[in-house]
Amino acid sequence: MIALRQILLLLGKDLRIEARTRQALALVLVLGILIVVVLALGLQGGNARGGLSATAILWVAYLFGGAMCFEKTMAVETHDGALAGLLMAPMDRGVIYLSKLLANLVLMATLAIVITPVGVVLFGFDLSRAPLAFASVVGASLIGYAAIGTLFSGLVASSRLSGGLLAVVVFPLSLPLVIASTQLLKGVFEHGNALDASAMGVIVAFDVIFLTVSWIVFELVIEP
């Protein structure tokens, strides 16, 4: 109960800072839109329109935008040694992990809500055929992605790594999500199937495994 209150306190703190500076969100949104537009232009000669390439391109935008989110939400803590102040609070460090995870998910959800329509329009992608399936596949995948992203952003913050490295680290780890969700969306939008249970199982297993492991490991490795 106390932990929940602390998580919400920290989440509120992060969102308040974001609302005041609008640093992360503005950057992430513009980056996401840019990626979609650049790829749309680059692929225009091929079979870009109407096809499933929209989901692939949206994935690229989610991945890069997400990596930017992880970096930005953790950067708040590295200014003026704020992380040390947080670590001195009488709480399990898992609380810090969960609050950052939620902050990242809020930002990524906003990103998805803004750029998905952009992708739909630019690629003439018919999302209305199965909007719920699309939302649940993307939602479940982004949770797993944020789980490892938040862990490694904490590591990057406590070891003063350069930011670009974060994307290099989290992209290969999240490939199972990309493959599983691509296969799922292909089944749904090309063949009109219902959601494939085994593919969804991969995504859910990814979420469960990495949420648990990250939550445990975060406590061990976070340092000011």
């Binding site: 290969p172 780890l173 199972p176 493959i179 085994s198 991969v202 990814f206 990495f210 990250s214 490991v217």
Partner: peptide
């Protein structure tokens, strides 16, 4: 984390 990822990669 990478090793835990391997079975997931395989399944996917």
């Amino acid at each position: 984390i990478a090793f835990l990822d391997v079975p997931l990669v395989y399944l996917s």
